[in-house]
Simulated scan of single mutants.
Amino acid sequence: MKYLLVLAVVIVAFYVWRNNRLGDQSEAARKAPPQPGRPKVPTVMVACRQCGTHLPENEAVQGRQGVYCSAEHRRLLED
């Protein structure tokens, strides 16, 4: 009877270990790298006329003489 209990514990432990191991492999398969899609378009960078700081074009402040990193720098050069 004692040997049957030990055998049952070993079988249950083996079953749990095997399922955890297989679960890790399937989880790794689910985390496969994404399929290549459209390449990302690089952001155009511009330099501030006042300080020379480079920043994305969509964040730049447009002025009469060029682009600036802030309204303060635009005011300093254009006034």
Rank of each mutant, 00 (worst) to 15 (best):
K40W: 03
R75G: 01
L76H: 06
S26M: 12
Y15V: 14
A8N: 11
R38M: 09
A8E: 04
R18T: 13
A32H: 09
Y15M: 14
L76P: 00
Q35V: 11
R38S: 10
A8F: 15
F14C: 14
P36Q: 11
E72A: 05
G66D: 09
G23D: 10
V9W: 10
S26Y: 12
N20C: 14
Q35C: 05
R64L: 05
V44H: 07
L22H: 14
A8Y: 12
W17Y: 15
C51Y: 04
E57H: 08
K40N: 05
V12L: 15
Q35G: 08
Y68K: 01
A71L: 10
A47Q: 09
D79E: 06
E72P: 03
S26W: 10
Q50A: 07
L5R: 14
A8Q: 11
K2D: 06
R18P: 08
M45K: 04
M45E: 03
L76D: 06
P34C: 07
V10L: 15
G52S: 06
P56N: 02
C48I: 03
Q50I: 00
N20Q: 15
A28S: 13
H54W: 02
G52P: 07
Q25W: 15
P56H: 05
K40Y: 05
P42T: 00
D79K: 12
Q35M: 12
S70Q: 05
G37C: 02
Q50L: 09
A8G: 15
Y3G: 11
V6G: 08
V10P: 07
L55P: 01
M1A: 11
V67H: 02
G63L: 00
H54G: 06
A71M: 06
E57I: 00
Q62K: 07
V12D: 08
G37W: 04
M45N: 00
Q50C: 04
G52L: 04
G52T: 03
D24K: 13
A60L: 06
P42E: 02
V67W: 03
E78F: 05
F14D: 09
N20A: 13
H54D: 01
M45A: 03
A13Y: 13
Y15A: 15
V61A: 03
P56Y: 02
S26N: 12
Y15W: 14
L7Y: 08
E59I: 01
P39L: 07
R30E: 07
E78I: 02
A32E: 11
M1L: 07
Y68H: 03
P33R: 13
V10F: 12
A32Q: 09
I11C: 14
P56E: 00
D24F: 12
L4V: 07
Y3C: 03
L77F: 02
P34L: 14
R21W: 13
R74Q: 10
R38F: 08
Q62I: 01
H54F: 04
A60D: 00
C48S: 10
H54T: 03
P33D: 08
D24H: 12
I11Y: 06
N19L: 15
C69L: 05
G52M: 06
A47M: 06
V46K: 03
E72F: 03
R75K: 12
A47V: 01
R64I: 01
Q35K: 15
P36L: 09
M1K: 06
P42I: 00
E59S: 08
T53S: 07
A71N: 07
T53N: 10
V41F: 00
V6D: 01
E57R: 08
V12A: 15
V44I: 04
H73V: 00
A60C: 04
E72I: 03
T53C: 04
